[in-house]
Amino acid sequence: MDKQLNMAPCGYFVMKPDGYIIEVNQTFCYMLGASRSQELTGRHIHSILTVASKLYYQTFFTPIMASYKHVNEMYLTFKLQNGDIPVLLNAVEREGRFECVIVHMTLRHEYENDLLQARRNAERMLQETSQAYENLQHLLSEYEEKKQEMLVLNAALQEMTVTDPLTGLKNRRYFQEQLTRYVNQSKKDGTPFSILLIDIDHFKKVNDTFGHPVGDAVLQELAGKLQSETREEDVTARMGGEEFTILLSQMGAEQAQTAAEHIRFNIENGKWFHTPITVSIGVASFRQSDTISSLMSRSDEALYQAKKEGRNRIALK
């Protein structure tokens, strides 16, 4: 080999088309860490390529050489005993042999790796960001779902705290809240309202005769009747035991009295599934001088009077 080519600042080797190396220059030996050219000649190119490069070489080098008779700037990695070296390879087919030149590309290799790494990082960050966004969306919809559940649950709880479990009517607590509201309203603008305090006559007898389950059923039946006797804007509540109240919205004493009598009449003459009952009703209408307790006392007194006068009647105080 010509001395200039032998010592040229690039690796030079010649191989047969089947990949066996025939000739190498000194620089090529030096680059591959061989002390004598005989260590490389006779070997197959595969034996000095890394696995990945071998794959790449077989997939691309051979077909390109077959079609174009030359290869330019192919990036490959040669396998050395103490580490691999990245190279750029140019090859040309001449007289049935492949003449190849390689140059080290350590620096460019690092630079390319950095670029590749940077791109991978960017891709990963993008992926992570979209993943995080997706998670966030997921959390958000989960939160919304839970919030809806809480709202429904809260409403149910709210309902439970103001409902009498046996009859489904409002309970004493709700009645008192509403009464406060009615009193305040009336004090402000003079809107009239009345309360009916309703007690079943001889309810103890019902329980003693038919037992508590029937007693409960009667309470439920009465609740249903009271509910249907009143308007949407009235408040019908069970105070406890066999005692019920109705807050009659925007009704003065006279109207309340008529309503109470109407209710009493219908209870006396209505159909009862288990056993017929009658009720006594105390009626009290709000006066501007009233407090909650004075109003309640009057309705109590009215009820007491109705009972005393023989039950199954109404009394106004």
Partner: peptide, 27 residues
């Protein structure tokens, strides 16, 4: 092949890509 060999091949393809695309084009 080991997984890392294939991954190295994928890297190599990326680095060589523009070059062999050039070969594929004319024909």
């Amino acid at each position: 092949f080991e997984r890392q060999d294939v991954e190295a091949l994928l890297d190599m393809m990326e680095k060589n890509f523009k070059e062999w695309a050039r070969y594929l084009a004319p024909i």
